[in-house]
């Protein structure tokens, strides 16, 4: 597979390390009433879709960027690649 890195252009997927669903960005609030349940759902449960999947890849043999790749799990077609940092900021993550 080839991942079109937003900064570095097309790179072979073997330069990257895969983590999983991009929902891992949405880490729950540790002070929430039901924090344990929320963390359980966050860490352990997956949509695991057959189709479009937003997922985290780390450019380990490259610039060490975490990327959010939108990829189809049936065809492997990649339709979007973003810097995970940008995605995290958009989703309201900060400090």
């Amino acid at each position: 597979m080839i991942i079109n890195h937003p900064l570095l252009g097309p790179r072979d997927a073997s330069e990257f390390t895969y983590l999983g669903d991009a929902s891992l960005i949405d880490r729950p609030d540790w002070q929430a009433e039901d924090a344990q349940q929320q963390f359980h759902d966050y860490l352990y449960l997956r949509d695991n879709p057959a189709g479009e999947h937003r997922e985290l890849w780390f450019h380990e043999q490259g610039d060490r960027s975490w990327l959010v790749v939108t990829r189809n799990t049936l065809t492997h077609e990649i339709t979007g690649v973003e810097l995970a940092r940008d995605v995290a900021m958009q989703r309201g993550r900060g400090r």
Partner: peptide, 17 residues
């Protein structure tokens, strides 16, 4: 196929394919 079948029952699983 666990993920896609159980999704029809509205369940999310601790499983990836």
């Amino acid at each position: 196929s666990s993920g896609r079948v159980m999704a029809k029952a509205g369940m999310r699983l601790p499983i990836e394919s």
